[in-house]
Design a protein around this nucleic acid. Sequence first.
DNA 1: GCAAAAGTGTTGAGTGTACACCCATGC
DNA 2: GCATGGGTGTACACTCAACACTTTTGC
Lengths: 229, 229
Amino acid sequence: MKIATKKGAKNSELIIGPAMAVDVLIFAIREEKLNVLLIQINNGPYKGKWALPGGIVALEETLDETAERVLEKKAGIKGIYLEQLYTFGKVDRDVRGRIASVAYFALVNSDKFAPKTNEYYADIAWKEVDDLPSMAFDHKEMVRYGVHRLQSKIEYSNIAYGLLPKEFTLTEIQKVYEVILGKELDKRNFRKKMKMLDLIEPTKHVKYGMRNRPAEMYKFKKRSLVFTK
Amino acid sequence: MKIATKKGAKNSELIIGPAMAVDVLIFAIREEKLNVLLIQINNGPYKGKWALPGGIVALEETLDETAERVLEKKAGIKGIYLEQLYTFGKVDRDVRGRIASVAYFALVNSDKFAPKTNEYYADIAWKEVDDLPSMAFDHKEMVRYGVHRLQSKIEYSNIAYGLLPKEFTLTEIQKVYEVILGKELDKRNFRKKMKMLDLIEPTKHVKYGMRNRPAEMYKFKKRSLVFTK
DNA sequence: GCAAAAGTGTTGAGTGTACACCCATGC
DNA sequence: GCATGGGTGTACACTCAACACTTTTGC
């Protein structure tokens, strides 16, 4: 794929440059594992490989808007946390032509939606980030990069709200931190820290129905990004 | 500016998308202020405005290579620290057409080179980031973003090496931290921290010639990015 | 000898880490 | 009554911030 840029109206000078795409990392936690939503390509040189949902940036569309469109059209998700990650620009990252890609990452609570296959790709599915299938382009590298960003960001922000339902128990949020950081945390220390950070507050609700003592439920004070340092 | 993307060789399907540029923030410290290198535009709708040095991404060139080329061609600098910052993609950021720009930032020791004007622009000069002239595009926003990145990164890495000569005194490096963070630091605490972080080591040299007690000189153990947390 | 920057330690507050037991419910 | 996860406090180590005086040189 090539791009011919026509500079100005009168001037017919032609500039050849890369095309521009957006790919979106959609993360969710499922069965105590960090997962990313992938689609399976159903034609062309990458047929059968898995890839991040993505799309070409339209002329009158900001990059953020492209990311939102991809989220909605390809995954059926709207209005969730979305952040630009990094722009990948190796010359040979797509064998079909020169396309640079701006990677975004998004967080969802996976209970809220089940991915639906459609005509554009062979399959769509959650995949564990620690056990990825064979992937097209440099998308495996994008996932690694996104996981890394998520790991650092959870340490100094309330970004975990994107992965949790409105109300949750302290054990549930601790599990989110453990899954993302990839290590176990001490229950008492975790709770002390949460209390200190002042990001969450108790609701009046209690979670019954487990075969153990019921847990108090909490919610984030703000469901928008807040930094803690 | 528009971009016509021709998909494949046989297929004449035409995709219209944004053009792609790279703009580089070149930071240096001069007279105890953080400065950025700007050029003054000498024609077109932005004539007279200041801007970051930049260039259009060529077809067979990675983004990193474009940034290196811009550094060398427009500023005459080679082989310094360079890092991708963020991609700016608002539709109307350039009145001449749709161009998304990948911003990079670079650090130099300003003693090492003096910018030279050339035929392509009206002027080239260091400008203090706290006192920027009228700027074209969204370049002021880019500078703000870059300063912010630099401020956070200096807190958990040895990135300051890019702004310092090979050898320096503890007071000189402290000044770099103070200028970037925009606040005074305690001398004893700063030295204690530096010693603990183990990023620098003493050379055998001593800086004489001041009208005061001579200072011992230090150097970074590694002049490549190292994280401290 | 005086001006100027170099160099050097201690204390208290706050944060991070390690660790063990009782409680409320479902079955 | 027993299995399961919920909930709580203390002690030590470490890091961070505040703070003042002596040393070595140039002039």
